[in-house]
């Protein structure tokens, strides 16, 4: 009897589904659903996905932008392994990534302090983010004036009795100047992200820790920061993607990759190779290597984003 009811129930459900499928409204949904995502799909496919495949093809050729490309197998990739410019760009990237704890730690501390109600916190939040809305071209042009040998930064050092440094012209300092300016112009982004995360830390946990006699620092270390782990993960991935793909403008204006290759990052090398060096085939090989790194990072990011969108 029970089983008969179940069968009957299932049959009704299937019948209902069939009716629904034949229902003009749901047929319209299927047709229009596809139609509505079509403009977005078309743009992304034409300008990003097809070029990615096309570029992978280019990376296997000796394409020079003029003559018809001919297939050379993995020779571009083999050449990368011995190219000092590429090696330098990777070393520069590793140095940059080694500074990531600062990109995460400094904004985290600032966010916690603002969240704890430091005087002027709301103002700090707004002002810290201000450089991030400026174009890297603007930031680069200004810091060119500030950091040049006869610029205002050295004048300030001079008034403190320190000797001037050619920040942008010395290959030992140029990369750190570049990293410093980028950090300065984007740290406010992570402050905002961490503040948003802090507002979700349960109040009771913090209160309970206080009642147990934990000091402020202990509460941070053992309660606040651990419950912020997902946000810290998100910020780390987003920051890594940011430093790998959004420093072109700053490099272009501030140092042009130099002196020598001391501030050349892969994204800038791709630009140089496809343009000035006239080696789009070779540039494509660097692109594909960068894509490999991006793909891993983006997959992690998409996992976080789909968890949030829940469709």
């Amino acid at each position: 009897m029970t089983s008969a009811t179940e069968t009957h129930g299932t049959a009704t459900a299937v019948r209902a589904r069939e009716l629904l499928d034949r229902n003009p409204a749901s047929r319209a949904e299927r047709r229009f659903g596809i139609l509505f995502v079509l403009p977005a799909l078309a743009l992304v496919i034409v300008f990003r996905i097809v070029p990615l495949v096309w570029g992978a093809g280019y990376s296997l050729t000796d394409y020079n932008g003029i003559d018809a490309p001919s297939y050379i197998g993995l020779q571009n990739y083999a050449a990368l392994a011995t190219d000092p410019a590429f090696r330098d760009s990777i070393v520069n990237t590793l140095i940059l990534l080694a500074t990531l704890p600062v990109w995460i730690g400094l904004p985290l501390v600032l966010a916690i302090l603002i969240h704890q109600g430091v005087p002027g916190g709301r103002l700090f939040r707004a002002v810290y983010f201000f450089p991030a809305v400026l174009s890297s071209v603007i930031v680069g042009a200004i810091f060119n004036m500030v950091l040049r040998y006869d610029g205002s930064f050295n004048a300030m050092l001079g008034s403190l009795g320190l000797s001037p440094v050619d920040w942008l012209g010395n290959s030992n300092t140029a990369l750190f100047a570049l990293i410093g300016v980028q950090l300065w112009s984007t740290f406010g982004m992570n402050v905002l992200i961490f503040l948003a995360g802090l507002s979700t830390v349960p109040e009771e946990l913090v209160e309970a820790a206080k009642l147990d006699g934990a000091s402020t620092l202990q509460t941070w270390r053992h309660v606040v920061v651990p419950s912020m782990v997902p946000i810290i993960e998100f910020a780390t991935v987003a920051t890594t993607i940011g430093v790998l793909t959004s420093m072109f403008g700053l490099i272009y204006v501030l140092t042009a990759g130099g002196p020598g290759t001391s501030t050349t990052l892969p994204e800038y090398l791709i630009w140089l190779e496809q343009g000035r060096m006239n080696r789009p085939g070779y540039a494509s090989a660097i692109s594909i290597v960068l894509f490999g790194v991006m793909a891993v990072l983006a997959l992690v990011q998409i996992r976080i984003m789909t968890k949030n969108a829940e469709i």
């Binding site: 990003r48 070029p51 791709i270 496809q274 692109s287 894509f291 984003m305 789909t306």
Partner: peptide
Amino acid sequence: FLVLLAALMIPVQVVLVPF
């Protein structure tokens, strides 16, 4: 939805030449 989000891993630098 996933294809559209996956485009995130293709910044312009990655497709500079073919773009």
